[in-house]
Design a protein around this nucleic acid. Structure first.
Length: 517
RNA sequence: GGGGCCGUAGCUCAGCUGGUCAGAGCAGAGGACUCAUAAUCCUUUGGUCGUGGGUUCAAGCCCCACCGGCCCUACCA
């Protein structure tokens, strides 16, 4: 028998991806940020459940499949595999890769539907308007424009057809006050603040009931006891967060442990669905609400919006092949304040890779470790009494755990890395000032102390940066003689053990090399 | 039409409730060192803080207008 798990639970999700097209770096950005969060919490002693996956229903999927002459299921099987490969490539430490076509998800979506219906929030009505197949959205008359006898959406410039169909509606209008009360009582429910404010403002302007079923296609979760109706996107898609942890079996150990979710990480394009519809659905169904919806921005290529028509869409695999996985992970989380839109460029990525990783961290590790290898018998040196400089630096390094916790608590990956690297800068200055290569001849004991202090800082940084660069930091910890069970944050309480034998040092963060022309 | 955001050194940006607030990193220049991945350290050149007014003893920081970039939202056509 295993003893009961006393660790606190932590449940986080990414949005589920609509796998109609090819993966791009924006998808990777969301996965990487969530993965860093998940790894951080695990290292900090939490029992983490990390859910990500694909949203596989809807008209567009059905149409694309038809165009390719295959069934929707065949199409999404293929596409889900494509996205799974992206996760493998990124090293995403997910616990489940959910698909909305998974059998258990059908049961979950139908169950929450019944709960909302039982609560009197679902009614049958008629939906009509100008419909864009491509956007899967209706547009009001004034949102359209007629050109050459064909009506287009002003917003997306897609072709529209007048469509009228019977549809079930969710009584979203009844939830305005309760949602506003939620935002008031739980100001951290949505973040960053400037994006959450837009959501709140939208709710304050009033909410209309939401069409939640379709009869015009059948590639979706069937509406219970309503032949011909399939669920229209949001009830189906959002419910994945429940399915992932065992719903509708609300009595299950997994559901009891992990629901409500601690964090949904999503893109700014779907903030309303997560900060308005989702809590309303859950209120209606009598389920607990997630604690936080973190809204990230979009990445631009050299300051230019990525788009297929511009041909500047970068595939995750290409970027990783060019710069390496960990440098890409580091760059994306360090360069862009999480929540804001960001931009990547070759120069910016190479700059971070070389300056922050190869020079500040990699070289510091290499220079200190190689001195230890040559002058300290290839083992963690025995320090003497610490000077004020030693103590000061060690204290700043020790404080980084607190700093990182505070930053990760609000998904401030950029700030966490910035502050961590600042200590690395201090350490490089310390190393130069102490000049252990001079002490080697004049005061070997003092040299040993300086090297010990330096290794201790490098070890602290390597430990704390594992969520961002798992592989590289793992190698660095190997070089520092840190065993597998000494790599979580709790292990930082104990300093490096003098005398621990170390392997021969090898560079972990190489400078960027341009491929030969 | 409402509401909001942004415009600070070449680049990316910090600057909370007005009084060392003119800063950081990168890039550039000079010097040092040689343990190290031509890495590191020290020093240093750059800014009328978008423009024009105003309030104040004192304004990137408050107010008004304007220019430029952007977002949310409403509505007339």
């Amino acid at each position: 028998m295993t003893s009961p798990d006393t660790r606190p639970a932590y449940y986080l999700t990414t949005a589920i991806t609509y796998p109609n097209g090819a993966p791009h770096i924006g998808h990777a950005y969301e996965y990487i940020s969530a993965d860093a969060m998940a790894r951080f919490k695990r290292l900090d002693g939490f029992d983490v459940f990390f859910l990500t996956g694909t949203d596989e229903h809807g008209l567009k999927i059905a149409q694309t499949a038809e165009k390719e002459g295959i069934t929707p299921k065949e199409f999404v099987d293929r596409q889900a595999a494509v996205y799974r490969e992206v996760h493998e490539l990124l090293g995403t430490s997910y616990d489940r890769l959910i698909r909305t076509t998974d059998p258990d998800h059908y049961g979950a979506a139908q169950d929450i539907w019944k709960r909302m219906e039982a609560n009197g929030d679902i009614y049958l009505g008629k939906y009509e308007g100008w419909y864009s197949v491509r956007d899967e959205a209706f547009y009001a008359e004034d949102e359209t424009v007629v050109r050459d006898g064909v009506r287009y959406s002003k917003e997306s410039d897609t072709e529209l057809t007048w469509t009228a169909e019977e549809s079930y509606f969710f009584r979203l209008s009844a939830y305005q006050e309760r949602l506003l009360a939620l935002y008031e009582a739980q100001p951290e429910f949505g973040a960053p603040r400037y994006r959450f404010n837009e959501v709140i403002s939208f709710v304050k302007h009033g909410l209309e009931d939401l069409s939640i079923s379709r009869t015009s296609f059948d590639w979706g979760v069937p509406v219970p006891d309503a032949p011909g109706h399939v669920m229209y996107v949001w009830v189906d898609a959002l419910t994945n967060y429940l399915t992932g942890v065992g719903y509708p079996d609300v009595e299950s150990a997994q559901f009891a442990r992990f629901w409500p979710a601690d964090l949904h990480i999503i893109g700014k394009d779907i903030s309303r669905f997560h900060a308005i519809y989702w809590p309303a659905f859950l209120m209606s169904a009598g389920l607990e609400l997630p604690r936080r919806v973190m809204i990230h921005g979009f990445l631009q290529n050299n300051g230019v919006k990525m788009s297929k028509s511009l041909g500047n869409v970068v595939a995750p695999a290409d970027m990783i092949a060019q710069y390496g996985l960990d440098p890409v992970r580091y760059f994306l989380l360090r360069e862009v304040p999480f929540g804001a839109d960001g931009s990547y460029s070759h120069d910016a990525i190479v700059g971070r890779k070389n300056a922050d990783l190869a020079n500040n961290l990699g070289n510091l590790a290499q220079r200190s470790l190689s001195m230890v290898a040559k002058n300290c018998g290839g083992a963690v040196p025995e320090p003497g009494a610490f000077t004020a400089e030693d103590e000061g630096l060690l204290a700043r390094a020790a404080d980084l755990l607190r700093v990182n916790r505070e930053a990760y608590a609000v998904q401030d990956f950029h700030g966490a890395l910035e502050q961590t690297w600042r200590v690395l800068g201090d350490t490089n200055a310390y190393f130069a000032e102490q000049a252990p290569w001079v002490l080697r001849k004049t005061d070997p004991a003092r040299m040993a102390t300086v090297l010990y202090v330096t290794l201790q800082v490098v070890r602290t940084v390597a430990t704390l940066a594992q969520p961002v660069m798992p592989e590289s930091c793992g190698k660095l910890l190997d070089l520092l003689g840190v065993t597998d069970d000494g790599r979580d944050f709790a292990a930082l309480d104990a300093p490096l053990t003098p005398g621990t034998p170390l392997p021969a040092p090898v560079p972990v963060f190489p400078r960027h090399e341009e491929p030969a022309a």
